Simulated scan of single mutants.
Amino acid sequence: MARVAFLGLGVMGFPMAGHLAAAGHEVTVWNRSAAKARAWSEKHKGRIAATAREAASGAELVMACVGNDDDLRQVCLGDEGAFAGMGKGAVFVDHTTVSATVTRELSAIAAGRGFGFVDAPVSGGQAGAENGQLSVMCGGESDDYARAEPVIAAYARICRLMGPSGAGQLTKMCNQIAIAGLVQGLSESLHFAEKAGLSIPEVVEVISQGAAASWQMQNRYQTMAKNRFDFGFAVDWMRKDLGICLGAADENGASLPVTALVDQFYKDVQQMGGGRWDTSSLIARLRR
Rank of each mutant, 00 (worst) to 15 (best):
F6T: 06
E130D: 15
V136P: 10
F92P: 03
N175I: 00
A248Q: 13
A56V: 10
I177E: 03
A90Q: 04
Q216V: 11
G116P: 05
A196M: 12
G8W: 06
A153K: 10
P201I: 09
A23P: 01
A146T: 11
H19D: 12
L72C: 09
Y145C: 04
G78I: 03
R228N: 13
W277M: 11
K172N: 08
Q74F: 10
M217G: 09
H95I: 08
P121D: 08
S57W: 02
F115I: 02
A2S: 15
T51F: 04
T28G: 02
G81S: 07
I283L: 09
M238G: 04
S142I: 09
A50Y: 10
A22C: 13
F117E: 07
V93A: 00
N31M: 10
D70W: 10
Q184N: 11
L286G: 10
V136R: 05
F6H: 08
A110G: 05
D144C: 12
R47H: 08
R53V: 05
R285A: 06
A148Y: 12
S142N: 00
M63D: 02
K43Y: 12
L72A: 08
S142K: 15
T28M: 08
V27N: 11
A17H: 06
F233W: 00
C174M: 14
V203S: 02
F14G: 05
R113K: 15
A154S: 15
S123P: 05
R113P: 01
E54A: 15
K240P: 01
H44L: 04
A49L: 04
M1K: 12
A100H: 02
N131M: 12
P150L: 13
P15S: 05
G247L: 05
A284C: 09
G166K: 00
V235Q: 05
D94T: 10
M173F: 09
T259Y: 01
A64D: 02
N68V: 10
G181K: 06
K195M: 08
F14C: 03
G24M: 11
A90T: 05
S214P: 03
M12V: 14
A211H: 01
A34E: 15
G132E: 06
A225I: 04
G81Q: 09
E42G: 15
A100K: 06
S165G: 12
A225E: 11
Y221D: 07
P201K: 03
T28L: 06
V118E: 04
M1E: 13
G58E: 11
